[in-house]
Simulated scan of single mutants.
Amino acid sequence: MQDDPQSLVSVEWLAEHLNDPGLRLLDASWHMAATCRDPRAEFDSRRIPGAQFFDIDAVSDSGSDLPHMAPPPEVFAAHMRRLGIGPDDQVVVYDDADTHSAARAWWTFRLMGHERVAMLDGGLKAWTAAGHDLAHAEPRLRDPVDYTPSPRPALVRDAAQVEVASRDGGEQIVDARSPERFRGEAPEPRPGLRAGHIPQARNVPVGRLYDDSGRMKPLPELRAAFEEAGVDLSRPVITSCGSGITAASLSLALERLGHRATALYDGSWAEWGADSNLKIATGDA
Rank of each mutant, 00 (worst) to 15 (best):
T108F: 08
L111P: 05
G273W: 00
P199Y: 08
R167I: 14
A97W: 00
T148C: 06
E138D: 15
G50V: 06
G63A: 12
I85W: 00
E171Y: 12
A176V: 11
A165W: 03
G273I: 01
P179G: 10
D284S: 14
L120K: 03
R260V: 13
L219C: 06
A137P: 10
Y94E: 02
L14F: 05
K125P: 02
L25H: 04
H17F: 11
A229F: 05
V92K: 01
D175P: 02
S64F: 10
W127F: 07
F109M: 10
A78W: 02
H100M: 15
L111V: 13
S29A: 14
L250W: 04
P144I: 13
L14A: 08
A263F: 06
S45L: 15
G244H: 07
P21N: 12
M69F: 10
Q172M: 12
G63H: 08
Q200S: 15
P21Y: 11
R24K: 11
H136V: 15
P144M: 14
P191S: 01
T128H: 08
P5A: 11
R260I: 13
L254H: 05
A159V: 06
L141M: 14
V9G: 03
T108Q: 12
A34R: 00
S60F: 08
L134D: 04
D143N: 13
R208W: 10
E185N: 08
P191Q: 00
G122D: 01
V91H: 00
P151V: 05
S249P: 09
F54L: 15
A253E: 06
P5K: 12
A51F: 07
C36E: 14
D146T: 15
H114C: 07
E42Q: 15
R40L: 13
A135V: 12
E74F: 10
V206N: 10
L66V: 10
A186E: 09
R167P: 07
G267A: 06
T148W: 01
I198Y: 02
I280A: 06
D284C: 12
A130N: 12
A165N: 00
E180R: 02
R208I: 10
A97K: 03
Y210V: 13
S150H: 11
A281L: 04
F43N: 05
G283R: 05
P205R: 08
D146L: 15
P220D: 05
R104L: 12
W272K: 04
E255W: 14
A105M: 15
L66D: 03
S268M: 04
A225C: 07
A105V: 13
T99V: 14
T246A: 09
A195Y: 03
L252S: 11
I238Q: 01
A281D: 02
L111G: 09
Q161D: 04
P67N: 03
S45N: 14
A41W: 12
P149R: 05
P199M: 09
D133W: 10
E228V: 08
M69D: 06
M80Q: 02
G258L: 09
L254N: 04
P153W: 05
R177P: 00
L26N: 02
D3C: 11
H79V: 01
S234P: 08
F43D: 08
W13I: 14
E271G: 04
A224N: 09
I85K: 00
G86V: 03
W106D: 11
A225M: 09
P39F: 10
H100L: 13
V204M: 11
